[in-house]
Amino acid sequence: MPIITELFYLPPIEHFVAIHNEKMVLLDIQENYQKQTYRNRCQIRLANKVETLSIPVLGGNKKIRTELVKIDYNQKWVNVHLRGIQSAYGKAPFFEYYFPYIEEVFQKKIDLLTDFNMELLTVCLKLLQLDIKVMKLDKSDTNSESIDIRGLISAKSPFEDRNIYQPAPYSQLFGLDFVPNLSIIDLLFCVGPESSNILVKSQKNH
């Protein structure tokens, strides 16, 4: 049964918990773009705080379809994000194995936000060893069989408000307290091949 969702930037763990059991994900990129969402931001854990990495976009203030939103490369955000990821996870057990795949996408300077996010999502699914087919949602495809979770996973409300994700703690790099629902790269860099098992354990109704 396909699951319909938005396309996020290095999505939070909750998003992968939601799609983990599905064979097909349909991504709605024809929706109107929304600012201050996971579409262009993700969260990573640094030594002293949780950092939000945000991709600057062009025309995000106007009513524009997500598929038309372009990334603003006049701002030096690529180095900021890569340096942030390196300082957060450079000493993580699986960083040296997985980081080159992520870095390669950043270095392509992809024009459209959706194309950039799609490449990163494809890399993350590969590293998670999840066999999920990802397609863009065709609006004519009104399949009543689909599970629609659009609008559910929001950066503006806590995951506890939703019935998707129940954090299964894993070994993080900094601090004694476990921080849940960071970007999927936190999980990948810290536990590597065990990531998929953590996703299963994190399902609220597993």
Rank of each mutant, 00 (worst) to 15 (best):
P2K: 05
T5K: 01
E6L: 01
L7D: 00
F8T: 00
F8Y: 14
P11D: 02
P12F: 00
P12L: 01
I13N: 00
V17R: 00
I19P: 03
H20V: 10
E22A: 10
E22R: 13
M24R: 15
V25I: 13
V25T: 10
L26W: 03
I29E: 00
N32D: 09
K35R: 15
Q36P: 10
Y38D: 03
R39M: 01
N40G: 05
R41Y: 05
R41A: 11
Q43E: 11
I44C: 02
N48A: 04
N48C: 03
E51D: 13
S54V: 14
S54W: 00
S54I: 13
S54N: 15
V57M: 05
G59V: 03
G60M: 04
N61I: 05
K62N: 07
K63D: 15
K63W: 09
K63N: 15
T66K: 04
E67Y: 07
N74Y: 05
N74D: 12
N74R: 06
W77I: 05
W77R: 05
H81E: 06
L82K: 15
I85Q: 03
Y89E: 03
Y89V: 12
Y89A: 10
G90W: 09
E96R: 12
F99V: 11
E104N: 12
E104A: 12
K108C: 08
K108N: 09
K109W: 06
K109T: 14
K109C: 09
I110M: 11
I110R: 03
I110L: 14
D111Q: 14
D111G: 10
L112Q: 13
L113T: 03
T114F: 07
D115F: 10
N117G: 07
N117T: 07
N117D: 10
M118T: 06
M118V: 04
M118P: 02
L121G: 01
C124L: 12
C124E: 12
L125Y: 07
K126C: 12
L128R: 06
Q129M: 10
L130A: 14
L130R: 13
I132D: 06
M135Q: 14
M135P: 02
M135A: 12
M135N: 13
L137K: 15
S140M: 10
D141M: 09
T142I: 15
T142R: 15
N143M: 11
E145N: 13
E145F: 06
S146F: 08
S146V: 12
D148Y: 03
I153D: 06
S154G: 09
K156Y: 07
F159V: 15
D161H: 04
R162K: 11
Q166F: 10
Q166T: 13
P169A: 12
Y170D: 07
S171W: 08
Q172T: 08
Q172K: 08
L173K: 04
F174E: 03
G175T: 06
D177V: 14
F178A: 04
V179T: 11
L182R: 01
S183F: 00
S183N: 02
I185H: 01
L187Y: 04
L187G: 00
F189C: 02
G192N: 07
G192D: 06
G192A: 08
P193G: 09
P193E: 10
E194D: 14
S195Y: 04
S196Y: 02
I198Q: 11
I198G: 06
V200Q: 08
S202T: 13
Q203T: 06
N205P: 01
